[in-house]
């Protein structure tokens, strides 16, 4: 009974203390972030891509699945600004429509993988002992397991399809995040404010998610944004090995891998997906760097 009271009190206490501060912090954060021009440009690019992902099917000049067997592999030019692919489909339309699948699956897979990894890392770092060893040994096993095998196994066991590919990609995101989070947790754990919170009678879960977790975020952001790029590419690699998510729906990675046979005869087929992937990965990374630098209190 007394316990809850104290907790309740400390909650109120914390809320009262933090609210106004949080507001000004957010404002300050935005102000700081806006100063990082490359990051802002990257951010705008990503927003544009997200908008494209939503509206593309309604605005593109051609139906992304519309084949035209009399116009195979034609180069960029009038009619088809980025040319047509091996079925005579419009590459520009396919890429734009494909934004949805590619971004969505990469983001989802990374978020799921990160969430899993962060959770494991927090638990391992915070509680230590047997739990720590168990989780870390599990990660060791995962690391020692080649990604490709894992992906093949996932796809072979539960069948092909976008969700399954996302699961496969998410699964091999887990161990590296668990590691990073664990070491970040270990260092955050020593900080003074954690001690204070603990002495105020915070429950473990509250300590973990309200106090420890935010402290580990800066070190996570860079890895997270880098992983999004890896996830987009992983889709392409899986497609190269025949384990792609989508064969009939447009998808950047699959376009790149299925078009590779035309690299020396119709290079535009892989050039445009390649550039788009490059720009997107670049944008996520620049955004990540910007966010990290903005969040880092030691930087001005």
């Amino acid at each position: 009974m007394a316990q809850t009271k104290i907790n309740g009190y400390s909650d109120q206490f914390a809320a009262a203390e933090e609210l106004p501060k949080a507001k000004s912090r957010a404002k300050e954060f935005i102000k700081k972030f806006l100063k990082r021009r490359t990051a802002v440009v990257a951010f705008v690019f990503i927003i544009l891509m997200i908008i494209m992902a939503i509206i593309a099917p309604y605005i593109v000049p051609y139906d992304a699945g519309q084949a035209d067997y009399s116009n195979l592999l034609s180069g960029p030019g009038k009619g088809h600004i980025w040319g047509t692919d091996e079925y005579g489909r419009d590459i520009f339309s396919r890429l734009m429509v494909g934004t949805r699948t590619s971004l969505f699956s990469a983001l989802t897979a990374t978020v799921i993988g990160t969430a899993g990894g962060v959770l494991l890392g927090l638990l391992a770092g915070f509680f230590g002992g047997i739990l720590d060893s168990l989780i870390m040994r599990f990660c060791d096993v995962m690391f020692a397991f080649p990604d490709i095998l894992l992906a093949i196994a996932v796809v072979a066991i539960i069948g092909p399809g976008m969700i399954n590919v996302m699961i496969a990609v998410a699964v091999f995101t887990v161990p590296s995040f668990a590691r990073i989070t664990r070491s970040a947790t270990l260092s955050v754990k020593q900080e003074l404010y954690i001690e204070v919170a603990r002495s105020l009678g915070c429950t473990n879960s509250r300590l973990l998610f309200v106090h420890v977790l935010p402290g580990t975020i800066p070190s996570m952001i860079v890895n997270f944004t880098m992983r999004i790029g890896t996830a987009i590419l992983a889709a392409s690699s899986l497609s190269f090995l025949g384990f792609g998510a989508n064969v009939t729906e447009p998808d950047w990675g699959a376009m790149l891998s299925q078009g590779r046979n035309y690299l020396n005869t119709a290079p535009h087929i892989v050039l445009f997906p390649g550039i788009l992937i490059l720009l997107t990965v670049l944008a996520f990374n620049l955004l990540g760097d910007g966010l990290r630098d903005t969040l880092d209190p030691k930087m001005n």
Binding site: S70, N71, L73, G75, G77, A266, P267, L271, G274, L278
Partner: peptide
């Protein structure tokens, strides 16, 4: 970046026929 990507890919197909040719051939 863009220039690099272009040069890279174009150099790669330096000795093959250009795109227009290819499509004519196909037809």
């Amino acid at each position: 970046l863009l220039a690099g990507a272009m040069v890279f890919s174009m150099a790669a197909c330096g000795n093959s026929s250009d795109n227009k040719d290819t499509s004519d051939e196909t037809t």
